[in-house]
Design a protein around this nucleic acid. Structure first.
Lengths: 224, 224
DNA sequence: CGCAGTGTTGATACCCCTCAATAGACGTGG
DNA sequence: CCACGTCTATTGAGGGGTATCAACACTGCG
C-alpha cells in the first residue's frame, strides 16, 4: 500500500479478496516482528494480506533504509523480479496471509480469474508506486505526513462520532523511512498538526483526525 | 527505465526485443516532442521502444511535475492500471516503437512466450521503481546525479578510447524532475562534477565520463 | 541581428537534517 | 505494585543542503 495521494473516491479501490476455487492452501498466521521473506529470497508464493499489517523495506549498503510499502488487508505482496524478492517483509501486527502460487500469476494454472486478478494487482502496484514518486520527489514534510494520514484514515480509519480515528501500527521511524524524512521531522510535524488542532494524538499509535478537510488541504499543498 | 542504482553487472539486463511470431503490427515512428499517450487515456497497446528515448511524466494539480521514467530501447511502456494510462508519454528524440496488444499481457492470446515476456517486464518495472524510491527518498543531489550518469553511461554510453561518452536527450529540467531536484541544483551539480574532473561537458547534452570509478563512488555515497 | 528558450551562476532564505538532551512507553524482575 | 533499564518519541539548538529569486550567458532559429 502506497500512502500517497488522498482521493475521496479512492481510485485504487480495495482489490477485494481472492478466494479462488483452485486455492486450497491454508492461510498463514504470523505474530508481530516475524519476517515473511528477505531480499534475495527466491519467490514461490504471493500473499494477500487477510488481516494485520506488514512492512516492505529495502536497504542501502550504508544502512540507509527505505520503506517501500505497508501491506494492509486486501493488498497483494511478494511480486518477484527475475524470480527473487527485492525487499524484506516483516509483520507489524498479528497477521494472516493467503498464499498463492507464483505460477497462478505466471500462467494461470487453470484459474483464469485468479490469474487476471493477480495481474491487475501487479499493474495497480505500478500505478500506486508512481503516486509515491510524486510524494517522495516533490512534496514537503507537512504534505507528506498529511497525505499519509489522509489515505490511512480513509482506508482503515474508524468512525468515532464526529471524528475519525486511525491506528498506526508502525513506528515513527517506519513512517520516516516511508516518506523520506527523519523521525525527528515526523515527530515535529505530528506536533505541528496537533497544535493546529487538525489532529489529536490519543497515544503514539492512535491518531484522531479532528479536521479532515484541513488535513486534505495540507496534503495537496493548498496552504501550509 | 529507472536510472537509479549503478550496478556493474547490470542486474536488470536489457530485456531484449520481443519479436513475437504473433506480432504483425507495424512499428510506430514518431518525431521528437510528439505525445504517445496522456494520463487518463484508455490503454489499448503496450509499446517496446525500438530506438530513441521517451519520457513518462505525471503532474500535480499545482503544476509540480515528476518524471516517472525515461524509456530507452528495450524498455516496455504503457502498463495500465484499471485500464487507463496514469502518465503522459512524450518522445525526446526520433523514436520507433513496436506496439503490442494489451490482450497479449492479459491473456496471452495464443502466444505464451510473448505473454510471459510482457509479464516479466511488468514485474521488473516494479523492482526498478523500488530502486528509484531509494533514490528519491534517501540520496543527496550528488548521489542522485552520479547514479543517473553511471547507469546511463553503462547502458547507452559509447566507448571513446579511454573514456566513455553519453548523450542526454532530455533537458536539465527533465533530469531535475526525475531526480526530485531543481534545474539549478542539477546544473550546479554538473558543474561540481566537471570541476572535479570526473566528467567533461562537451556540450549541454553530451557528457564524457573521465573517472568512472569516482562517479560510482559518489553514486553510493562513499565520500562527497 | 534579435529574440526566445535553455542553461549557468550568484546571493540569500529556509526547510529539514544532525546532534543532543529530555520525556514517555514498555517490559522485566524484585 | 513499584524500581529499573531499554527503547521509542519528543523537543531543542544549530548547521547544511537545496530551493528560491534574480541576473547573465549560451544556443538555435527566424
Amino acid at each position: 500500500m502506497y500512502v500517497t495521494i488522498p482521493n475521496p473516491e479512492m481510485r485504487e479501490g480495495a482489490p477485494g479478496f481472492l478466494i479462488g476455487a483452485s486455492c486450497k492452501i491454508a492461510e498463514t498466521r504470523l505474530k508481530p516482528g516475524q519476517f515473511l521473506f528477505f531480499e534475495g529470497d527466491e519467490v514461490e508464493w504471493l500473499y494477500q494480506v487477510t488481516s494485520g499489517v506488514v512492512r516492505l523495506t529495502r536497504m542501502l549498503a550504508d544502512g540507509r533504509r527505505q520503506v517501500i510499502a505497508f501491506g494492509y488487508p486486501g493488498d497483494i505482496i511478494g511480486f518477484p523480479a527475475d524470480g527473487l524478492h527485492h525487499t524484506d517483509c516483516e509483520t507489524l501486527t498479528d497477521t494472516r496471509l493467503q498464499p498463492f502460487r507464483l505460477a497462478h500469476l505466471e500462467n494461470g494454472e487453470g484459474d483464469p480469474a485468479l490469474h487476471a486478478a493477480l495481474l491487475q494487482a501487479a499493474l495497480r502496484e505500478i500505478s500506486a508506486m508512481q503516486d509515491h514518486f510524486m510524494m517522495l520527489g516533490r512534496k514537503s514534510a507537512t504534505e507528506k505526513l498529511a497525505s499519509f494520514l489522509c489515505v490511512l484514515t480513509e482506508r482503515v480509519g474508524e468512525d468515532l462520532g464526529a471524528f475519525r480515528q486511525v491506528t498506526l501500527p508502525m513506528s515513527r521511524s517506519d513512517i520516516a523511512d516511508f516518506l523520506g524524512l527523519t523521525t525527528e521531522t515526523v515527530s515535529r510535524t505530528f506536533t505541528q498538526l496537533r497544535k493546529a488542532a487538525i489532529i489529536a494524538i490519543d497515544n503514539t499509535h492512535t491518531i484522531i483526525v479532528q479536521k479532515p478537510a484541513a488535513l486534505l488541504s495540507l496534503s495537496v499543498g493548498d496552504q501550509d
